[in-house]
Design a protein around this nucleic acid. Structure first.
Length: 294
DNA sequence: CGATTAACCTGGAAGC
DNA sequence: TGCTTCCAGGTTAATC
């Protein structure tokens, strides 16, 4: 499911349950997701306290009391649900369908010690479900994350301080690949995916077919604020729900109702009334308006 | 080096 | 109803 806004939505749902708790038990129902799980995966997590839950691009990072960080990527279809007494039951119904436990691959059981009198323990089950298994998990020393292979060469965080017009220009400079492909490259900007690249290019009036290098300068100046705006709006909306994305509490995102071009082939462009087109670039669908985007 | 393509997986929707 | 084909929010390995 996830691009940056969806991952951020998941992070915000998990954080209140995970941060400050510890893993009382971790179960993996298979040895691998997209990649093999790390050696001694469940043993290294069991008993660990969770000190923080952060996001970098499309990755979630749980800083543990053991000095390691649990790195999680949701791939295409990864989902977390929280099962806890008093917590809204998630995912039991998604789009009216009963959710299956068939692809529950990792189950985290957490315990939180409360200072509140009368409630000494608070248990939760956090379930990772991923039908396509493109997601993955890894463990890496927390003080060495910049050298972790998943983050090496990764571009700036689009909603962070290091992302600005200069940084964008710098990374588009000289690149002959279409701007669409360049923006999907996590080395240019972290966290963008197919939906938000299409939407940002539409808002900026830039053709997805244009060479990345030709976006340097004036066009980058138009693109930069639109990337930030579309991501902020999508986070605000709780992400986009296409087929089955839901937050940890089962809530559906609603940014999909605000798509201007994504998955809207044939619809009239809101600005110029021409038909939205669908083309294939580097094996993926691109939606755009040939009238507004040059 | 950079750019493009195939591959990894499952399930749902559309077409016949 | 059933079978086939296409498509999907991502990344990486292999090939030009």
């Amino acid at each position: 499911m996830p691009e940056l806004p969806e991952v951020e939505t998941v992070r915000r749902g998990l954080a209140p349950v995970m941060v400050g708790a510890r893993f009382s038990k971790v179960t993996a129902t298979r040895p691998d997701l997209r990649f093999p799980l790390p050696k001694e995966f469940t043993a290294r997590l069991t008993g660990a306290g969770i000190e923080a839950l952060d996001r970098r691009g499309k990755y979630l990072i749980a800083a543990l009391s053991t000095g390691e960080s649990l790195i999680m990527h949701l791939g295409m279809s990864g989902r977390f649900t929280i099962h806890q007494e008093g917590h809204r039951q998630p995912g039991n119904f998604v789009h009216g369908q009963a959710a299956s436990t068939k692809h529950d691959h990792v189950i985290f059981e957490t315990v939180r010690h409360r200072s509140v009198r009368g409630a000494s323990q608070n248990l939760a089950r956090i379930v990772y479900n991923d039908p396509r298994r493109f997601g993955f998990m890894d463990l890496w020393p927390s003080d060495d994350l910049e050298n972790c292979r998943h983050f090496q060469g990764m571009g700036p965080e689009p909603l962070g301080n290091s992302f600005n017009i200069t940084a964008l220009n710098e990374r588009l400079k000289g690149r002959q690949t279409p701007i669409k492909a360049a923006l999907l490259d996590q080395c240019v900007v972290a966290g963008l995916g197919n939906i938000y690249v299409c939407e940002a290019l539409y808002r900026a009036g830039i053709s997805p077919r244009r060479k990345a290098a030709s976006v340097c300068g004036v066009r980058a100046g138009r693109l930069y604020p639109e990337i930030i705006a579309v991501l902020r709006e999508a986070i605000e909306a709780g992400g986009s729900t296409l087929r089955d994305f839901a937050a940890t509490d089962g809530d559906l995102g609603y940014f999909q109702h605000r798509f201007a071009v994504y998955d809207r082939e044939g619809d009239a462009c809101a600005k110029c009334n021409r038909h939205i087109q669908r083309i294939v670039q580097s094996g993926r669908s691109t939606f755009f308006c040939g009238g507004c985007q040059r």
